[in-house]
């Protein structure tokens, strides 16, 4: 049994035999009451010196000097600083987009029957011209069909039909398909025409007055009053609620 060189001072070695199995504190093991405790991090030079001086002997249940005192002897408190190992999962995490305390809303707008509607621009992936829409047999009237979007097959919904405002003409030159991504799914919205992307101050948004708007108030988030125009803010999640459910309209 090798002894350490006697030039180093050592505290008397204590055999860590527990008289009775200690209660297990959080994270501690019952099985090895004689486990060595190390600070959460350290440099070799420091730790090895400590080890040689016996300062790292186990303390639990053995009657030796409690380790807490030993720990303070460990140099470089900065490295051993972090008192908790817990990582706060979330809440404080800041999403860059939210940084600007929403003083403005960023909208993409389009036309339906002459009225201008707006949706959150973050939902819009792109706006394209109307290309060949492959009809799907026995589909409800507002599902115009499917299109090929760079290799992906996405459904196209006639927004006017969906909202009870009539029908969008596929053939009309200004008609567009607004491709939106809602809950990881891509859907194309067929509209009379696309307008623009703009920021509106939140202050200009108010509740939608009943007389002005023809569609179900449920689908709206309000209206934005700008100097010469009125933009009706649409809640896409509500409009597409049925479609977004698994199995879509079949489920009704």
């Amino acid at each position: 049994m090798a002894q350490t060189p006697s030039s180093r001072k050592r505290a008397p070695r204590k055999k860590a035999v527990a008289s009775a199995p200690p209660e297990a504190a959080d994270g501690e093991s019952i099985v090895e009451p004689s486990r060595i405790a190390l600070p959460s991090s350290g440099l070799a030079a420091d730790i090895l010196a400590l080890a040689a001086s016996g300062a790292l002997e186990p303390a639990v249940g053995s009657g030796a000097v409690p380790l807490v005192e030993r720990r303070t002897a460990v140099p470089d408190p900065e490295t051993a600083a972090a008192p908790t190992h817990s990582i706060s999962l979330f809440g404080a995490a800041v999403r860059e987009e939210r940084k600007a305390v929403e003083a403005t809303e960023h909208l993409a707008t389009f036309f339906l029957s002459g009225e201008e509607y707006g949706i959150d621009v973050r939902l819009v992936q792109e706006i394209i011209r109307v290309s060949d829409i492959t009809q799907v047999p026995r589909a409800p009237g507002f599902i115009k069909g499917v299109i090929n979007l760079r290799g992906r097959i996405i459904p196209v919904i006639d927004l006017k039909r969906k909202l009870g405002l009539g029908e969008v003409s596929e053939a009309a030159r200004q008609s567009r398909i607004v491709v939106v991504k809602v809950r990881e799914r891509l859907v194309g919205l067929l509209v009379d025409g696309a307008s623009q992307v703009l920021k509106v101050p939140v202050a200009s948004i108010e509740a939608a007055p009943e007389e002005v708007v023809e569609i179900d108030a449920n689908y709206l988030r309000g209206v934005a009053k700008l100097e010469s125009r009125l933009i009706i803010l649409m809640d896409l999640n509500k409009v597409l609620a049925l479609e977004l459910r698994e199995g879509g309209a079949n489920a009704d």
Partner: peptide
């Protein structure tokens, strides 16, 4: 080895070391 850090560790602890 020049040093060690115990899991679980914070990024800052690793950086410091």
């Amino acid at each position: 080895a020049k040093g060690y850090v115990k899991k679980p560790f914070q990024a800052s602890e690793l950086h410091g070391l």
